[in-house]
Design a protein around this nucleic acid. Structure first.
Lengths: 234, 234
DNA sequence: CGCTTAATTGAACATACTCAAAATTTGTGG
DNA sequence: CCACAAATTTTGAGTATGTTCAATTAAGCG
């Protein structure tokens, strides 16, 4: 765990963060007591069932939020990128984390203490408004996911997931492959199916010319066809 | 649409409402410009896709929030009861409603104007805190629903849904039947299956002695067995 | 190069859906 | 209160989608 130089929230140029609306003075306050840790790919940031004593903010890296079902199968809820905030729901409702956060690539993640966040939240109506916005967005997304999983079949869901991955993480400049390293099992945990079905579905999508597969890398060739298969309007 | 006597928020004794934390003066402000309408069973309070111009609060009655899938099948997200607030997510994120609200029994529902709610929200940190809490709760629930629908089979989901219905709406004093009138199709929309499968599953649950069926009425006999079947710990 | 892990393929199987038909309940008008 | 129509519930049989399990192939890594 590296703590050599902890960048202040003032210097952070992640634009998507919850905290970008704060002014410099507030960011200064936020940065006090802040910690930053390094997490190697595969390492856990927090576990389902633990109590939250602060907020995590991704300085650099990618994280999956997942929940373990009683039969041992995981479900991935959300994938997070630079600037995203983790574990805020548990903090806000003062409950244990209901999901486990795992680094899907090497990460630097800041940790903001509970007290500091809550004291700013109480005084700062802009921050509470931002928080409300973020919760609303996540809620909308969760309900959309529910809709999808009930109403769409695996092929449609895989197509949609691939488009989401392109949107969220972009593509590699060299080979145009997806800029996230999720293996087939993780893909199946994201889509809500099994790795075998993911494999069969990916090869179907390759046949239809939507995507290409170079080893385990996935290259999206025809996004509009994917979008059509996923039955997306927006 | 009856507007004979609109009860002020001051007189409202629904304890579960978002607004119970407001003091009398604030409730007074909230009540200005308030409207109350009567909705007959089956009537729509607002439609998916419409823009929100206010907030709905159930004075008395039961409402389902559902979304129509592209294949015409509905999914019920939430069932609401006296004191519950409807349509706040769309209002908060300034987007169209993403679900349709329909009365599942005769309802009296109050309507609070967007401006009035937002102006109180901005000044009142207690109300924003309450709003954050409510969003957190709904988000947690939505994620739990997602988990359930992916990881559990129909029988388990039906068992869980029945328990939820008992918790939310209680049972009839006379015959101990569920205190909500949902038909088999609506039950299937809630659980994410078809009406035929609901019927078969209910008769299975009757055979196991969890429930009894008097016509279309459902009577929960053995909640702990249901809970076991649903694989619930909490 | 050998070892371990991940990906792929195949075939049997299960769960839940679809469609059609019958039975039952509910609502309405006389 | 009854008769009829409409809506809802129930049952049955065939089918599809996706899972499971076992075996094979390919990829990553010291």
């Amino acid at each position: 765990m590296n703590t050599d130089h902890i960048p202040s929230c003032l210097e952070c140029n992640n634009k998507t963060s919850l905290f970008c609306s704060l002014d410099n003075e507030e960011k200064q306050v936020l940065s006090q007591n802040k910690g930053q840790n390094f997490y190697k790919k595969g390492h856990v940031i927090f576990y389902e069932g633990n109590y939250a004593n602060g907020l995590y903010c991704i300085y650099n890296g990618k994280v999956k939020l997942s929940k373990l079902g009683s039969d041992g199968k995981q479900q991935i809820f959300r994938l997070s990128n630079n600037g995203d905030v983790l574990g805020y729901r548990a903090l806000l409702s003062n409950e244990p984390y209901q999901a486990t956060a795992t680094a899907i690539e090497d990460c630097y993640i800041c940790h903001i203490s509970k007290d500091r966040f809550q004291s700013i939240l109480k005084e700062n109506s802009r921050l509470s408004w931002k928080t409300i916005q973020m919760l609303s967005k996540d809620l909308k997304n969760a309900e959309k996911n529910l809709m999808n999983i009930v109403q769409k079949n695996v092929k449609e869901r895989v197509a949609e997931a691939l488009l989401m991955l392109v949107n969220t993480f972009g593509t590699n400049d060299k080979d145009y492959s997806l800029n996230v390293s999720l293996n087939r099992l993780e893909l199946s945990d994201l889509v809500g199916t099994t790795s075998e079905t993911i494999i069969r579905t990916l090869s179907e999508l390759k046949k239809s010319g939507c995507i290409d597969l170079k080893g385990k890398k996935i290259i999206v060739i025809n996004p509009s066809l994917l979008s059509q298969i996923a039955r997306l309007t927006d």
